[in-house]
Structure formats: C-alpha cells, structure tokens
C-alpha cells in the first residue's frame, strides 16, 4: 500500500505523528515552566507533577491496552496483535521506569526520602511494575513461537485486569487513612489543569509514536528473517538437486555469524580481487 503512494503522501502519513508529538511536548514544557503558576505549598518542585503523573497515567493505560490487544490476539490468532501487545507492554515498562524514578525524585524533594509508603498510587504502581517485570522473562523462556505468543497474551490479559484491581485494593489499605496532599488531578486551578491536560496529551502522543516505531521495527525484522530463511533454502537447493531446479534463484543468505567478513569477500570476489575456491 505504501509503495504505491507518492512520496509526499507517504511522508505525510508517516511523519504527522512524530511532528505533532514534538510540537505537543514543546508546548507542554513551555506551559509547565512559563505558564502554570507556582503551587502554594510545593513551589517549583511541583513542576515534576506535569511529568510524573501524565507518564504514570499513560503507563497504566498502556498496560491495559496491551491486555486488550492480547484479547484481540487470542480471538483472531493474528501475529500482528501479539506484536502490538508486546510493544505496548514494553513501552509501558520503559515509561514505568521513568515514573518510578521521577516519583522517587519528587518524594526526595518533597518529603526528604527517596521512597515513602504514604502514597497509595505510587505503591500500587510499584506492585504493578513488579508484576510486569516478569513479562519478558516469561515470554522468552518459552521456546515455541506460537505458544510464546499465546502464553504472553494470557499473561497480558491477566495483568491488564490486575492493574485496576491493585490500584483499588492498595488504596483501601489501612495505612492510607491520612488525606492525600499530592498528585491529585482534581480541584486544580484552571491554568494548572490546562497544563496538565496538555502534558497528558503530549505524553500519550509520545507513547503512540514510540509504539508505532517499535511495531514497525519488529514487523520489519520478522519480514527480514523470513526473507533470510527463504534465501538460505534457495541457496541450498541447487546443491542438493542441481539439475532438478536450474532456475532456482541463488539468493545468498546473510544470516548469523558469517556475514560481515564473507560479505566483504564477496564484494572483492565480484571485482575479481579475491579468488574464491
């Protein structure tokens, strides 16, 4: 589909998302530092709020999105849904690390400790991250490709459903009886609320951009591996039955280890500089 379109149309199709993302992030940063007023209690430190909370929301939505894509995968059995689900969770893990680190920095600035146990959202976030940290080890400990995708989808759905449950149960826990001071997006003054919404939109777009990038890279790698396998088979075919398939394409494989040196030697051989036995 892409190849039939004219270059400008293709560029528009692929470039609008990153460009919009860059503009929105610039806008969010500008609003955060030059428009949103200083918060009364926290002062300048509260600027972390516009980074930390949107990132956390996007991360959790990404985990749930990965679960929904996993449902689509189990229903349709199409590999692309598995790839999308994997990438959604992978992106969320990366964003989640950002959330934990920025939250920790905020806690240090605000309360003087790198970690505090009085913020239920942060604590449930840690539990959810602990669970999702096992996603990739589980996935890559299963050899068979189809089974790997299926089991990973089961995990993604279970964990996606766990996300809201963990948030709710942790919030009910008795140690959080004190009223919460921070990270509540309710009852913000209007300029702060607007900045927050723009930041949330910006980080959602960042997530979408990176998600699309990685999905494309992964699908391209799948296609490449398929081509390489095909090339290997065709290259071996003439040796086994040279007369039976005279027209078999002699694609030379470039898999695995032999690549670079022999690729160079091939180029030299083509120019007649090296005699290949």
């Amino acid at each position: 589909m892409d190849s039939t379109q004219k270059p400008p149309a293709r560029l528009l199709r692929t470039a609008w998302l990153p460009v919009t993302t860059a503009l929105m992030i610039a806008a969010a940063l500008a609003l955060t530092f030059f428009y949103a007023p200083l918060e009364a209690q926290e002062g300048f430190l509260q600027k972390i709020f516009y980074l930390h909370v949107p990132l956390a929301i996007v991360t959790l939505c990404g985990f749930v999105y990965g679960g929904l894509l996993a449902i689509a995968h189990l229903r349709t059995r199409e590999v692309r849904y598995d790839v999308r689900s994997y990438v959604a969770i992978h992106m969320s893990l990366i964003f989640g690390v950002c959330v934990l680190i920025t939250g920790s920095i905020w806690a240090k600035g605000s309360w003087g400790h790198w970690w505090v146990w009085n913020e239920p959202t942060l604590d449930s976030f840690l539990i959810i991250m602990l669970l999702y940290c096992t996603y990739q080890p589980l996935r890559f400990a299963i050899e068979d490709r189809e089974r790997q995708a299926r089991y990973a989808s089961v995990f993604a759905i279970t964990a996606g459903a766990f996300v809201p449950m963990a948030m709710i149960v942790v919030r009910l826990a008795p140690q959080y009886v004190h009223p919460r001071v921070l990270s509540s997006a309710n009852n913000l003054p209007a300029p702060m609320g607007a900045t927050f919404v723009v930041a949330l939109l910006a980080f959602s777009l960042l997530y979408a951009t990176l998600w699309r990038l990685e999905v494309r890279v992964k699908l391209a790698r799948f296609r490449l591996r398929a081509l390489q396998r095909l090339a290997l088979e065709r290259a071996q075919a003439p040796l086994r039955a040279p007369l039976a398939s005279p027209g078999a394409p002699l694609l030379v494989p470039s898999t695995a280890s032999a690549d670079r040196s022999s690729g160079r030697r091939r180029q030299l051989a083509e120019r007649g500089e090296v005699i290949v036995p």
């Binding site: 669970l131 096992t134 400990a141 050899e143 089991y151 766990f162």
Partner: peptide, 23 residues
C-alpha cells in the same frame, strides 16, 4: 499453568505469583 512450559518455571512461578497476591 502459565509457567509450566517455560524453561525457568521454578523461578518464574513465584515471581509472577507474589505481585498478584499482594492485594
């Protein structure tokens, strides 16, 4: 059942279980 087909099931089982059981 989720970890039984994986290589490191003795390790993965508890690692998956514990966060799910924190609530």
């Amino acid at each position: 059942a989720l970890v039984i087909r994986s290589r490191a099931r003795d390790l993965l089982g508890p690692l998956l279980m514990l966060p799910l059981l924190i609530p």
